[in-house]
Design a protein around this nucleic acid. Sequence first.
DNA 1: CTGTTAGCGCATTCAG
DNA 2: CTGAATGCGCTAACAG
Lengths: 362, 362
Amino acid sequence: MTVTLADVAHRAQVSPATVSRVLNGNYPVATATRERVLRAVTELDYVVNGPASSLAAATSDLVGILVNDIADPFFGILAGAAQSRIGAPAGAGRAGGEKLAVVCNTGGSPERELTYLTLLQRQRAAAVILTGGAIEDAGHSAAVASKLAKLAAAGTRIVLCGRPALPEDGTVPPSEGGTVTATLTFDNRGGARRLTEHLLNLGHTRIGYVAGPAERTTTRHRLEGHRDALREAGLPYDPSLTLHGPYDRASGQDALPRLLSTAPDLTAVVAANDTIALGVCASARTRGLRIPDDLSVAGFDDLPSATDTVPALTTVRLPLHEAGARAGLLATTATPPTGPGGVEPVPAELVVRESTGVVRGG
Amino acid sequence: MTVTLADVAHRAQVSPATVSRVLNGNYPVATATRERVLRAVTELDYVVNGPASSLAAATSDLVGILVNDIADPFFGILAGAAQSRIGAPAGAGRAGGEKLAVVCNTGGSPERELTYLTLLQRQRAAAVILTGGAIEDAGHSAAVASKLAKLAAAGTRIVLCGRPALPEDGTVPPSEGGTVTATLTFDNRGGARRLTEHLLNLGHTRIGYVAGPAERTTTRHRLEGHRDALREAGLPYDPSLTLHGPYDRASGQDALPRLLSTAPDLTAVVAANDTIALGVCASARTRGLRIPDDLSVAGFDDLPSATDTVPALTTVRLPLHEAGARAGLLATTATPPTGPGGVEPVPAELVVRESTGVVRGG
DNA sequence: CTGTTAGCGCATTCAG
DNA sequence: CTGAATGCGCTAACAG
């Protein structure tokens, strides 16, 4: 029924070994022979049996990209860029030696993150890219670190993109194996600091902050940057001005009324990402607040939608496309990471648009 | 180095076959034995070798979800819903018999679509879900149909979600094998028709249309619905009022000025999707056009961002989450599709918000 | 309910 | 440069 390597070999009048060699191209084969084999492959419409090949070679061409929320363009851009660097280069009709880059949506669930890692481990994945903030739970972190160590020990390349490097504090016994290949860390803290500085320069002193989920590294780092700026300016940090919630629109929408009831004197709101900021803007509209005249609003990430608000959002740009592409590269080729400890910093750039202005009452 | 089934069997004092049985749970095993095996598995930290298992069983637990643009929430929502119905149910710590649901981003490229299908075929994928509009090129359609037939023949379940059913016109010789498992067709045409009718009821007669890429089924169906409404109202269809472009924001932004220069008397613009509509709105703002007083704007899909425009977008709601979940279900379980020919229609509902109003000059 | 026996299809040694 | 032989780790009949 299904055509195998042996069938191709038979038709091409060569041994299975030779067919394998031309297919993998890792070995010298006479041109004439190669062509004969290739012809047989086409004629028979032969497709390699991946599992068999992976079993024999003890490696697969699967590359997993884990994301927290596939419906969020932040991850979509990252994953898309990584995937385009890895898999299926356009034009490769026959699907030669390409890797199969796939994205796995954890939905932000620690369990699913681990499950996906196990599934990928089971498949003997060639590489795994973990994107976005990590969950800061001691138990879970240890579990992930241990899992990654095992994956690495089994030859899987590991790239962290947008999350901090794993601690090398012996959390994972060296006996457990390999180590993370490369880490791309976003300058969340610095970006957030510059953003809040921008607001302070505009005269704002009562600034609300709509943070992400409490247990995420991204959330913490961005918030820390915010507090850094406040501290440097000699301003106190008022915890009641910070609200936590998911990285979504509704979170921003819910937050604004609550912030304003707590602190009616608020003149600016910083959202932990653009999506939340959109929610804040929507809520501001509902309340008849003009942006930036009555309220300055800022986001983070500089997603395409940041220019859909009225007015366009002041935010912090993360080079998501570049970072994703780089992650894809590091995951597949032997390119060594450049930074110390394999950690490459990714810059965050303040982008001032129209949603922030000098404090009202001037 | 790496622990195998045999190691577990040895430690649990049973045969490899028994271990396999408890792991797959498809066979009766004495509780005591099962527990002993499970304990050995934990102690040894055993992880199934996927390729070996797939090879022996001639099936894998991989489910591929193909999307046209992973950075587009339309696909993110669809894929996320499908994936959550398939893979890694939260709480399954050990990663038991779950399937590995992965999304593959074709970026709208026909070549990559085919390459991914080949890669999935190579992996002997358990199922493949193709989402979103199909490319209307005779050659490519035939290639895809042929590929799908082979996949189906090899036991892979095929679900089409958001694209029309494959023609059963003998394009693919029956000898080539199986057939599509199920198809979820979105009522793009009907939704588009109702949307334009809504505009006509408001008195608009000069309506611009910003369509998607010309060669996509989704594009064509939505445009047809628009024209249907026009025709039924006895209005002529003016091709110069239709512009084609990608399904993105920039497309809408570029289109409005061009439409207005062609037809300064335009009172409404229909965009082929919400993302394009956001671009149209942005462009309108730039030109100082008030929505809906000066210009009515409508979108399609009802993405979360449809409420981010000012004012909120009139659009057509597609139950993306439900459709994605249904696709995931059909792809994995033996649930038979309900409709004739395995085609289940997905309704499209007009959602009137504030971006459309009665024609100006009243 | 459990053990034994065979392969699954391919990538590698190793010889030629 | 090419062929023959071996085994990757697991599942699926068969017995028992």
